[in-house]
C-alpha cells in the first residue's frame, strides 16, 4: 500500500514502507516547460528535509528539487539524465527522480495530501 504526499515546492513522494520515491508534479512540469537537463544526487548522500537534492532545467528556466523528507538517497532514476523529457511525459511515473529513506516518519505529517495540494495549486492556475 503506497501513499502519495506533496510539498509546497511541487515535489511528490510516494511512500513505500520506510522509503519514498520522489518526483515533481504535473503542475510543476507544466510550469517549467520542456525539460532539457536533470542532475541527480549521488546514491548514499544524506539529505535533510528541504535541502536541494536535484536540479531540473527547462529551455527557459532552472529549478531545484528539494528533499521532501530527511533521509539517505537509496537509488536514482538512471534513465533521466539521458532522457530528461520523461519529466514532461510522465512526471508521476517514469519521470521519477530518486528514492530516499524516510528517517523521520513524523515529517510526513507536514506534507500535503492530494486534495490539499490541488487546492494549493488551484489558486495559481
Amino acid at each position: 500500500m503506497s501513499e502519495l504526499k506533496f510539498t509546497k515546492e511541487h515535489e511528490w513522494i510516494r511512500i513505500e514502507g520506510k522509503e519514498g520515491v520522489v518526483g515533481i508534479t504535473d503542475y510543476a512540469q507544466q510550469q517549467l516547460g520542456d525539460v532539457v537537463f536533470v542532475e541527480l544526487p549521488e546514491v548514499g548522500r544524506k539529505l535533510a528535509k528541504g535541502v536541494e537534492a536535484a536540479v531540473v532545467e527547462s529551455v527557459k528556466a532552472a529549478s531545484e528539487v528539494y528533499a521532501p523528507v530527511s533521509g539517505k538517497i537509496v537509488a536514482v532514476n538512471q534513465a533521466l539524465p539521458n532522457d530528461p523529457a520523461k519529466v514532461n511525459q510522465d512526471p508521476a511515473g517514469e519521470g521519477w527522480f530518486f528514492r530516499i529513506s524516510i528517517d523521520n516518519p513524523g515529517e510526513l505529517k507536514e506534507l500535503m495530501d492530494e486534495a490539499a495540494y490541488k487546492a494549493h495549486v488551484g489558486g495559481g492556475q
Binding site: V36, F37, E39
Partner: peptide, 10 residues
C-alpha cells in the same frame, strides 16, 4: 560559447 555536456549555462 559552447558548453560541454548537457547543462545550460545561463
Amino acid at each position: 560559447i559552447l558548453p560541454e555536456g548537457r547543462q545550460p549555462a545561463r
